[in-house]
Design a protein around this nucleic acid. Sequence first.
DNA 1: GGCAAGGGTGAGCGGGCGCTTAGCGCCGGG
DNA 2: CCCGGCGCTAAGCGCCCGCTCACCCTTGCC
Lengths: 212, 212
Amino acid sequence: MSTAEETAGGEAQPWGEVTPDAARRLLLAAVEAFAERGYHATTTRDIAGRAGMSPAALYIHYKTKEELLHRISRIGHEKAVDILRTAARAEGTPAERLADAVSSFVRWHAGGRTTARVVQYELDSLGPGARAEILALRRQVDAEVRGIIEEGVRSGDFDVPDVRGTTLAVLSLCIDVARWFNVDGPRTPEEVGELYADLVLRMVGARGTGAA
Amino acid sequence: MSTAEETAGGEAQPWGEVTPDAARRLLLAAVEAFAERGYHATTTRDIAGRAGMSPAALYIHYKTKEELLHRISRIGHEKAVDILRTAARAEGTPAERLADAVSSFVRWHAGGRTTARVVQYELDSLGPGARAEILALRRQVDAEVRGIIEEGVRSGDFDVPDVRGTTLAVLSLCIDVARWFNVDGPRTPEEVGELYADLVLRMVGARGTGAA
DNA sequence: GGCAAGGGTGAGCGGGCGCTTAGCGCCGGG
DNA sequence: CCCGGCGCTAAGCGCCCGCTCACCCTTGCC
């Protein structure tokens, strides 16, 4: 709520639940570093330095460097599922709910690009156990979007020959925003969210909304 | 042309132009290793080992590990520009050319996922000079696709309110294929190419083709 | 005021990294 | 038959990595 919960990039995040304070600062520093240089190119000394602490301090709160990535990834994926679930369970036509889901999901990827980058692109750096846990959350993400599209097809609002493939494409489009979005670029997260909601409605052949 | 130019994954690549033979084997080994584990997590010992050589052999043909990535990235991007340029300069309606460009670009990302992954996702691991060179090639990629869309808008075949944004979305969709495509999955590169060409034609509001 | 507990530090260990160097075997030309 | 050069290897250098350990300073309870 307050600006104290935002990073320099202006991203409000649900890191408030992470305690104690030093652990949260380390997690935030790790998100920044992983997003900038990638997990493997980031050193524990760099993370600790960004958090204003000595290299050894990291190991008081986290067992390994990988635990940091795991924690970040799980919190991020839970947030993603939450965003999509909220949109999917809302009232309104399938088209309205799909547009809402896409625009808020895109806003999250663009506005919280730092976090989203780590969440979406550093999955392979996790060990087998942690990766399996995250993949389960990803299946939930897929299921929420597919649910909206299936409902639109049943009600006749959408025209989609390949539901699974189209779901994949819609999610892919949203996720890739984290790769190319630039905070200093010409578009705001809100503008990209609107544009993408429009494009997705076209992809599912929605009648009478957005697409002329 | 022959199977000798293909990797175990079955990807035919233009690595034929790379000589001598040992240099090509090292480059191929680097592509595989970078795609599997990422640039920073790959060791020069691993690359040399995959090519069946000692660690020191690498430095006879390449000055640094980064030069390997640079070479791979440039060859890959040149191929990408070539694919899109060929489709853009072909004969036919804008819709036909856009569908062709998307389906062949997607086939390249899916079929040559190993190479495409390195080309699309390891850009940040390059130094400033090399990155600038590659970014110039990326602008050519963008220009080719934008050109087709602009032409379709002028001729009235397409309905696109935001040409730059839609171009970005189309390319983003294609590129992200390299992230999620799985050789052992249910879809062939050709099927994904067709599906995506259809989706893109819907995104640009193409009249009378593909989208019902 | 004594003291246990816990967050923090400085120094450093073992190891693996990118890269170098001295030298070996093979092969074509005189 | 000798030899120069090239492709390659074995060994290893210096560095920095993830992580540990012995110790310190603050805080709250009696």
